[in-house]
Design a protein around this nucleic acid. Structure first.
Lengths: 218, 218
DNA sequence: CCTACCGATCGGTAGG
DNA sequence: CCTACCGATCGGTAGG
């Protein structure tokens, strides 16, 4: 209460350090996964001690959960955050899809989409980290579902549209974008993604020339 | 040459042990990744010593490369191997796509598709393991490309079909199948995959009722 | 294939 | 936030 240095500043500095830890963790985890993220490496990169770093979170699992939260915050900022003013339904879906492609195209994280990597890493396991990743994924799909239903009631999609099928194909398009950009360093992947999204949602990509359907059944 | 126990049998046993190691490695790696595959754990599971196990491969990286090869062998057996007698072009594509879905639907490996997991794990890194995974992926895409071109020249696909776009969407469909089956334990994912493949390749899935295109552009 | 061992690193704790 | 330390495990080697 008396002879301590300004606690206000100390709190601010603590928050700043925590942010630095999470920012760097996101970069590491997007490339090497949440298990490749080790306390020692992280502390060394940031120039602080392992004990000092761990003091912010307690355990490695708590750190992993904090990183998942930070990734969700980043995604929310970069995708839905950029289309907050766009009308619900089909306009929102097209704008959100474009923001999603753009987010990966701009290489915001060095390893691409954190959630794609984290989902693949933890999909076969149980535990709190798996549950957090799966839950956030489900939340995003719920947003898509809401706007897809709105697009149907607005008449922008046929009334018999299979909403879950469409979500499946939207997710597949984005998984492929990450796959081709990261594994094959294929810079034409964003264009491919936009064409696929146009087939799914309509819209106005100038580069779409081929017909909507590839093949007719026999 | 003289006083050794049958060298024939010893070689057979060595091969058998090597097979056991690779089979178990594939199961571990499909769930926990190629880095989650540790010598100690593997040796313990199989009831042999670490040194004995490592003797088969030399280093961990050599083991990882052997596991990648074993995964390629398994995939080749389960997908192209099952459609070897199907005519080239569109018939082959439809049969191969069905074999691909079936392979994941039957849960051949506990963690789903090894290559999907391994690609996500190594996509941001360099090195021989990354190169092996990317190379095998490229090989499979080359097979798809050959048959897509054949389908075009047979008139089963329009002459202006964007082959690489179609490959992109086929891959996306399979990535989504793995994603929904593994992360969300969604057993309807194979049906979704078949519908998406039908939209891409045509064919005769009985469950397709909705129209081919979801939305019209403005 | 084994035992016995190596240095390095892991997540984490004690105590300040 | 630090130093100093813990037991466990990592990949790998020596020698048989």
């Amino acid at each position: 209460m008396l002879a301590r240095m300004s606690p206000r500043k100390s709190v601010v500095e603590t928050r700043h350090t925590r942010r630095r830890i999470l920012d760097h963790s996101l970069r590491i985890a997007s490339v090497d996964g949440l298990e490749g993220l080790t306390i020692g490496r992280l502390a060394n990169d940031l120039g602080i001690s392992k004990a000092g770093l761990l003091g912010h979170f307690g355990t490695k699992q708590a750190l992993q959960l904090a990183v998942v939260d930070a990734a969700a915050e980043l995604f929310t900022q970069e995708v839905p955050g950029r289309v907050r003013t766009v009308p619900s339904g089909m306009p929102w879906l097209r704008a959100a899809a474009e923001a999603w492609v753009s987010y990966l195209e701009r290489d915001v994280l060095p390893g691409g989409c954190f959630f794609t990597a984290a989902a693949a890493e933890f999909d076969g396991r149980g535990g709190p980290v798996h549950d957090a990743i799966a839950g956030l994924n489900a939340l995003w799909q719920r947003d898509l579902r809401i706007h897809l239903r709105r697009a149907i009631s607005d008449g922008d999609l046929p009334p018999d549209t299979d909403v879950d099928q469409l979500i499946y194909e939207l997710v597949g398009t984005m998984l492929a974008l990450n796959h081709f950009m990261q594994l094959h360093r294929d810079r034409s992947a964003p264009t491919r993604a936009r064409r696929a999204l146009h087939r799914l949602l309509g819209g106005t990509p100038a580069d779409l020339t081929s017909p909507t359907r590839y093949a007719d059944g026999p």
